[in-house]
Design a protein around this nucleic acid. Structure first.
Lengths: 208, 208
DNA sequence: TGAAAATGCAAGTAATTGCTTGCTTGGCAC
DNA sequence: GTGCCAAGCAAGCAATTACTTGCATTTTCA
């Protein structure tokens, strides 16, 4: 009765007709990201979803049920990041730019969920468990890659962790500024990827 | 009647006897940073402060009154950052390390308020107004300094904004990881300041 | 067409929350 | 002592919130 997994249905109406369950999730995602878990009341969620409040509880056992469902959407982040590093790159810089794109893309693509995690970081056990390992994932993945480069002798003896941390946090910060504080960076993202990659490689002193 | 600015009184008891008003603010600061504005109920605040709930409303007009009071604590950030750059530095690296220390120190010192701002970023007009300009302040201040160095010919033509962004966000990320997600970085802060400064200057390729 | 499933609607419930009121108590200053 | 002021205590209030129940209505689909 809860959510009977029938997915082939929207053939009838074309676009507008979105599954009720999806509409609820979508509304909750948006509201929780903006107002936090508590601020996203079940009433507001149902209104935004355009359904009756009871319908929400017909689809989800309770409010945390919605949250846990949403959190599943970032379970595969590590996998995605590692996959993005699979291909061959012409040089180190291209790899960095590509990694930046992948990482920033992931953040933007699932901005609401990341926001919810930030906001509710230590309120809900569900979030804690899911989120606690996440911030360092992107750093670790890149750090490991850099370490591999080092061991192949392609890179001098820097601390790869610090380097990865600097790189990753740059885009996280840019992401937060843009999507949480609504600040525009006066810079196209792609340009930032390039610049940051170059600086990480050459340093600000090493430019011609 | 509200808060009559009598400050000379704690001479009687010595340490333990903290002003009621301060205890309330302190409790609110802690709770709002952890649970958010909504999660920090006036009941919980009063309990943590060890006072009766009515006392809270005797000291503050209402709940937002507490919030606005707390927010005043980060009004002087730009000033503090600029002040930290006043002195003379033996070289660029020392300046960067010093800036990192100042910035990270500010974050830690007022961690609760920064957390509150992060969490409530677009819920309360008070926070919006106070916080909207803040994330880029630390970047701007450093960016300007780097630009000055460039104009004196002491630095090649890199984009100083990107450089400043990378540097600042590194410590912001480290701060968030440690104090919001309770992750330890496996690294002493001072070491991070050093490493990050060197990488920013030399890049990861430029090491001996 | 007809049964089953999904949704709407009305109403309600127990708990929480921000905030108020009226009154008492206790300490300090004069 | 007397008066004042801060704080405690008990009680309550109106609004909100998560969630339920019962029933009517619509939609789906075989």
């Amino acid at each position: 009765m809860d959510h009977p997994d029938i997915e082939q249905k929207l053939g009838g109406r074309g676009e507008e007709e979105q599954e009720t369950r999806e509409r609820i999730l979508s509304a909750a995602r948006q509201l929780m990201a903006q107002k936090g878990y508590k601020g996203a009341t079940t009433r507001k969620i149902s209104e935004l979803a355009g359904v009756n409040e009871v319908t929400v509880f017909r689809h989800f056992k309770n409010k945390v049920g919605i949250l846990t469902e949403l959190l599943k959407e970032i379970m595969d982040v590590r996998e995605q990041l590692e996959q993005g590093l699979q291909g061959e790159f012409s040089d180190l810089k291209q790899m960095l730019v590509s990694y930046a794109r992948t990482y920033y893309g992931l953040l933007v693509e699932r901005k609401e969920i990341f926001m919810i995690c930030m906001i509710e970081a230590d309120n809900h056990p569900e979030v804690v468990q899911m989120f606690s390992s996440l911030p360092m994932t992107a750093v670790e993945v890149l750090s490991n890659k850099l370490l591999a480069f080092q061991e192949q002798g392609h890179l001098p003896k820097v601390d790869p962790f610090t380097a990865a941390l600097m790189f990753v946090s740059t885009f996280f910060y840019a992401f937060m500024a843009k999507y949480r504080v609504n600040l525009n960076l006066e810079m196209v993202e792609e340009e930032l990827f390039e610049n940051a990659s170059e600086i990480l490689l050459q340093g600000i002193k090493g430019f011609k």
